[in-house]
Amino acid sequence: MAPPLESMPRSVVLAILLLVVVGCTSPRAHGPAADDRYPSDYVIPRAFYVGTRVGSTRLRGDFDGRTQVVGPDTIDVPDAGTGAATAFAVGYTKHGRSIEVVYTRANYDELETSSVALNALYALRANERVQPYALVGLVFPWATLDDASTDGMAIGDADLRSGIGLQLAGGVAWMFGQRVALDLRGGYLWQEFSEAEGVAGSSGSIDDAVNGSQFELSVGLTFFRLLRGGR
C-alpha cells in the first residue's frame, strides 16, 4: 500500500500535521464544547493523563524480506511479519481534544522498532461513557535489525534511523468516571527511514528511503488527573 504521502515533501507533511494539531487543540465555539451544556459524569474539562497500551502490529512495505540496503555494508531488511507493541503516553486533554507524546516499542522476530510520536486526538462524544475518537500523529521511528548486516566478513545488527512517519487511527474509549478510560484502537502508520548503519559502523544516508506500512490493533488504559477550574 503506497499512500500519496510518500510523494509529498517532509516539510509539507509536517506543516499539515501542525495545522491538524493546532486545530484540534485550540478552543472552538462548536463541536465538543457544546457538550458543556449537558454535563455528565464522563466529561473531562481539563486534565493531564498518562496511559499505556499493548497491541498487535503488522509491518509491511519494505519489511517483507525482499529489500536490501547496499552501501559500505550490505543490510538485508527482514520480513517483519506480526509483532507485539507496547506504548507509554503522557498527554493533556480538554473537552475531548487531546494532545499526547507517545513512546512505542514493537518487537518482531528479526527486528525491533521504536518511535516517539506526537499525537492529536479528537473524541466525537466527549460527554458520554462510550467515546469514539480519531487520532493523527507525527511519528519519529527507528529500528534495529537483528543480524541483518555484513561487511563481507562479520555479521551483526543493523540500524535504520532518521525515520519519519504519519499515523492515522480510530478507536472507542470506555470511560470509568472521569479518572480512568479503557480504549480499543486500530490504526495505520506509514513511515520511512533515510539513514542506515551496518555492522562495520558505517553510517550513511539511503537513496530512496526504506519505507514501512504498519497496521496496529491495540488496547489502552488511561489515567486522568483533573485540573482545577476546568468546568
Binding site: 529489500t67 536490501q68 547496499v70 552501501g71 559500505p72 544516508s205 537513496d207
Partner: peptide, 12 residues
Amino acid sequence: HSPRSTYTRVRN
C-alpha cells in the same frame, strides 16, 4: 561527493 557514505535501497 557525498560527505557521508551512502546506501542504496534495492528491491529483489
